[in-house]
């Protein structure tokens, strides 16, 4: 555990000093604050029974921007360290291979936690100073959903990193994965859903394969979004299982992505040359 803490501390220091994290924090803060303040004047807060456009926009930012940062940081971590020869030097020390993955995850998750705290914290301050303190509960839900999506994306990024041949390949694969989750998924869904009869298994699979969709749906369920915002998959799932079970499936998807990502990364480090 001492080795994991030492390595995680180093990873956190490196990430906290990187421009990507600083810029990510500023962009998240600017986006969340801008949407909250500008949209707040047109609505009575976040998380109202009829989901307003402000909350929908904030939810999109919450489940897309931090996971993009997590995927890119995770992808660059192990692959970059191996390319620079540093991973091999560290792996020759008295540390287990799994602890290299665990330390990278803990260190980067801490750095991303700071980004989320800064981004959502700044937005919360803006809401309170603008007299919209009632919206803080909705913002907290968005932050929690963002944490789940970011945790899953970071694990996926580390898996990509561990299996890639170099940092450039890993970063490219991470960005491609993000596009597939955020854009490609919707295109595939739009093309296939009208053509097939939905079933519970297919619906579960459709949500399970995309952690960002699982996080988005979870956010909508927690914010009490109406059927108009849930989408066909969400509506079907809620109709068949109810809100609690549907939320449970979304949370399970995020947990499975996190565990699977870390497991795949560990397997790669145990099998591959460092």
């Amino acid at each position: 555990m001492s080795a994991v803490l030492a390595l995680a501390g180093g990873e956190l220091r490196q990430a906290a000093r990187s421009r990507a994290v600083v810029v990510g924090g500023l962009v998240l803060a600017a986006s969340a604050t801008g949407i909250s303040v500008l949209g707040g004047s047109a609505a009575d807060g976040l998380g109202t029974a009829s989901l307003d456009t402000t909350t929908a926009a904030l939810l999109q930012v919450s489940v897309l921007l931090p996971p993009l940062l997590a995927l890119v940081l995770g992808a660059g971590s192990l692959a970059g360290s191996r390319e620079r020869g540093f991973l091999g030097m560290i792996a020759a020390q008295p540390v287990r291979r799994w602890s290299l993955v665990g330390a990278a995850y803990c260190g980067l998750a801490s750095a991303l936690g700071l980004v989320l705290a800064f981004g959502f914290g700044f937005s919360a301050l803006a809401l309170v100073s603008g007299g919209s303190a009632g919206a803080l509960a909705g913002l907290a839900v968005l932050a929690a959903v963002s944490v789940g999506a970011t945790a899953a994306a970071l694990a996926a990024g580390l898996a990509i990193s561990a299996w890639s041949r170099g940092q450039a390949e890993a970063t490219g694969a991470a960005v491609g994965t993000w596009f597939a989750f955020s854009l490609g998924y919707d295109l595939v869904l739009a093309a296939t859903v009208p053509a097939v009869d939905p079933s519970l298994g297919m619906t579960f699979l459709a949500i399970a394969v995309n952690p960002l969709e699982a996080a988005r749906l979870l956010g909508l369920l927690l914010l009490d979004g109406g059927s108009a915002t849930l989408g066909s998959l969400g509506v079907y799932l809620v109709d068949r299982l109810g809100v609690v079970a549907a939320a449970g499936i979304c949370i399970t998807s995020l947990v499975v992505w996190t565990v699977a990502g870390l497991s795949l990364a560990t397997i790669a480090l145990q099998r591959r040359d460092l």
Binding site: G10, R13, Q14, R17, G85, F86, G88, M89, A92, Q93
Partner: peptide, 18 residues
């Protein structure tokens, strides 16, 4: 065994901001 040795690669780039 892992505590008993150390390894220096031919090429290693230490963390630049450390």
């Amino acid at each position: 065994a892992r505590r008993s040795f150390s390894y220096l690669p031919q090429y290693v780039e230490l963390p630049a901001t450390s």
